[in-house]
Amino acid sequence: MEIVTEKDSDYNDLEKMSLREVLVNINNEDKSVPLAVEKAIPQIEKLAAITSEKMKEGGRLFYIGAGTSGRLGILDASECPPTFGVPFDWVIGIIAGGDSAIRKAVEFAEDDAEQAWLDLQEYEIDSSDVVVGIAASGTTPYVIGGLKKANENGIATGCIVCNSGSPVAAAAQYPVEVVVGPEFLSGSTRMKSGTAQKLVLNMLTTSVMIQLGRVKGNKMVDMQLTNNKLYSRGVRIIMKETGTDEQTASDLLEKYGNVRKAIEAIVRA
Rank of each mutant, 00 (worst) to 15 (best):
G65Q: 01
N12T: 14
G217V: 12
A170F: 04
I134L: 12
A171L: 00
N218A: 11
F88R: 15
L201R: 04
L225A: 06
I102Y: 05
G67T: 04
D119E: 13
Q247V: 11
N27T: 14
G133D: 03
E15D: 12
A113K: 11
G187Q: 09
C162S: 10
R214K: 15
S69I: 02
I95Y: 00
S32G: 11
D245E: 10
K31D: 14
L230I: 07
D30H: 10
F84Q: 11
V86R: 13
L75G: 04
E183I: 05
L19R: 00
T139Y: 14
N202F: 04
I44R: 02
T51R: 14
V215F: 10
S232T: 09
Y174L: 06
K104P: 05
Q247W: 05
F84S: 02
V200T: 02
A48K: 12
M223F: 15
T51W: 15
S127Q: 13
D76K: 14
T140V: 07
D10S: 12
E254T: 09
L120E: 00
N27F: 09
E38T: 08
E29K: 14
E241Y: 06
Y11R: 02
L14F: 13
G97L: 03
E124A: 14
V176K: 01
E110S: 14
A101K: 04
N25W: 07
Q121E: 09
N12Q: 11
D10V: 10
E254A: 00
I144S: 02
E152Y: 15
Y142H: 03
A48N: 11
C159M: 08
V24G: 04
S164H: 13
L23D: 09
P182I: 05
G59A: 04
K54N: 12
V235C: 03
V4G: 03
T248E: 14
N151M: 05
Y63T: 03
A150L: 07
K39A: 13
L253C: 01
G243W: 06
F184D: 00
N258L: 01
S128T: 09
A101R: 10
C80H: 10
V143P: 08
C162Q: 04
E6A: 11
L212I: 06
L253H: 00
V143H: 00
L23W: 15
D13P: 02
K148Q: 10
P141E: 00
E57M: 15
D111T: 08
V86T: 06
G145I: 03
T68S: 14
N27M: 09
S32F: 08
S137V: 08
E38C: 07
A269P: 08
S207C: 05
G257K: 00
Y231F: 12
E183N: 05
L199E: 05
